[in-house]
C-alpha cells in the first residue's frame, strides 16, 4: 500500500498531460475527479518508471535493429530500476510495430527502437499508412545510424566507383536491393542519377537474401548496411567502393564518400533511434534521453555495438527530432526528383 500514492501521482500526472495534449490546450483544467488531491509535485521528484518498460522492435528477432535493442537490454539494468522487455512485432515490414506504438498510451512505458530506419520515413510517402511518421511520435534519442555502403563482389573487375559508373554507361549493371521503395532502392536510384549512369535494381526479400546475391557474385553492385556487409568484407568476399554518408566513417577511414568521388548524393543512413507515442510528457522524455545518454557511454554497450558493426551515435530528443524532420523532407524531395511511385 505504501507505493499507492506515488503510483497515483504518476498516473494523474500522465492523465493530466495526456488531457492537455489531447485536445484544446487548457493547462489549468484538472481532470475530473481530481478535486481533493493536490496537484502532483513533478519538480520535486523526477519521473522514473515504476513497472517494466516495453521496447517494441518492429522487425524480427536477429535483425540489426533487434541486435541494437538487445545490446541496450544488456546494460539497461545498470541505469533503470525497472526491467526492459523487448517485444518483436515484425508484421507489415515494420509498420505493425510502429502503428502499435503510435496508438499506445503516452505514459512512458511503451517505446520503439528503429525510428528513422527508412521505410517509416519513405514508405508512408508512397503508400497510405495508418500512422503519421512525424506527428504520431515523440523522438527520444538517436543511438546509432546504419550508413549505406556500396560494395562489389570480390571477383568484380571494377576497382573503384568511377570505373563502375563509367561501365554503367555502356554495359547493363545490376544492383541487389533488400526491397523496393526503401532506403536501398532510393540510394541506388540516386547514385545512378547523380553519376549519369543506368543501374537496374533487382529487389530481393530482405537484406539477407540481397547480401547473399552480392556474396555469390550474382549482381554487379549492392548497397547495404555495415552490419550486413562487414562480415563478408572481412571474409574477403565483398569490396567496399564508397559510402553514402556525408563524412567518412571513422571505423572505415579508407572508404571514400560519394561526394569525394564527385557523385552528388549523401544520406545519413538508416537512423536507429528510440521514439514514444506523441504527447509523451517532457519529464518522461527527459528521463529517457538521460538514460540513453548514459547507456550510449557505457563501455559494455560500446563493445556490444562494435561487435555488431554498429556505430554509437547519440543525439538527444531535440537534436534527433530535427534530424528526423530534415531526413524526412530530404526523402520527400528525392521521391519527387527520382519520380518514384508504387501505385
Amino acid at each position: 500500500m505504501k507505493r499507492f500514492p506515488k503510483v497515483m501521482g504518476v498516473v494523474l500526472t500522465a492523465a493530466m498531460l495526456l488531457a492537455g495534449c489531447g485536445g484544446a490546450k487548457k493547462e489549468a483544467a484538472p481532470p475530473a475527479g481530481n478535486t481533493t488531491t493536490p496537484a502532483p509535485t513533478t519538480q520535486a521528484k523526477a519521473w522514473a518508471p515504476e513497472k517494466p518498460v516495453t521496447m517494441i522492435v518492429p522487425y524480427s528477432a536477429g535483425g540489426s535493429t533487434d541486435v541494437l535493442a538487445r545490446v541496450v537490454e544488456k546494460v539497461w539494468s545498470k541505469y533503470v530500476n525497472q526491467p526492459l522487455t523487448v517485444v518483436n512485432k515484425p508484421g507489415a515490414s515494420g509498420w505493425e510495430g510502429r502503428d502499435s506504438v503510435a496508438k499506445a498510451k503516452a505514459d512512458g512505458y511503451t517505446m520503439f527502437m528503429g525510428y528513422g530506419s527508412g521505410e517509416d520515413l519513405i514508405a508512408p510517402q508512397l503508400r497510405t499508412a495508418t500512422f503519421d511518421p512525424i506527428k504520431d511520435f515523440t523522438p527520444i534519442s538517436l543511438l546509432s545510424a546504419h550508413s549505406v555502403l556500396f560494395v562489389v563482389p570480390a571477383e568484380s573487375p571494377y576497382k573503384s566507383m568511377q570505373e563502375l559508373m563509367a561501365a554503367a554507361k555502356t554495359k547493363p549493371i545490376n544492383a541487389a536491393l533488400s526491397g523496393v521503395g526503401n532506403l536501398m532502392d532510393i540510394s541506388v536510384r540516386a547514385l545512378a542519377k547523380a553519376a549519369g549512369a543506368e543501374i537496374t535494381g533487382v529487389p530481393f526479400a530482405g537484406g539477407g537474401p540481397a547480401t547473399t546475391a552480392m556474396v555469390g557474385n550474382q549482381v554487379d553492385i549492392g548497397p547495404g548496411h555495415p552490419s550486413e556487409l562487414m562480415p563478408h568484407v572481412k571474409g574477403g568476399r565483398l569490396r567496399i567502393l564508397a559510402t553514402a554518408t556525408p563524412e567518412r566513417d571513422p571505423s572505415l577511414p579508407d572508404v571514400p564518400t560519394l561526394k569525394e568521388l564527385g557523385i552528388n548524393f549523401t544520406n545519413p543512413g538508416s537512423l536507429k533511434g528510440v521514439a514514444m507515442p506523441k504527447g509523451t510528457p517532457a519529464e518522461i522524455v527527459k528521463f529517457y534521453e538521460d538514460t540513453f545518454k548514459k547507456i550510449s557511454e557505457d563501455p559494455d554497450f560500446k563493445k556490444g555495438m562494435a561487435d555488431a558493426f554498429q556505430p554509437v551515435i547519440y543525439k538527444n530528443s531535440a537534436e534527433f527530432g530535427t534530424l528526423i524532420k530534415s531526413t524526412f523532407d530530404n526523402y520527400t524531395q528525392m521521391i519527387k526528383d527520382l519520380n518514384i511511385t508504387v501505385k
Binding site: 528477432a61 536477429g62 535483425g63 547473399t212 562480415p231 572481412k234 563493445k303 561487435d307
Partner: peptide, 25 residues
C-alpha cells in the same frame, strides 16, 4: 559463409554477433 538461411538460423547469427563472434569464412 556467414549467411543465415532461415529465421531460426538468423537468430543464432545475431546471438553470435552480439557475443563478438562474426560468423563467416
Amino acid at each position: 559463409l556467414g549467411i543465415p538461411s532461415n529465421s531460426s538460423i538468423a537468430m543464432i547469427f545475431a546471438a553470435l554477433l552480439i557475443q563478438g563472434v562474426t560468423p563467416g569464412p
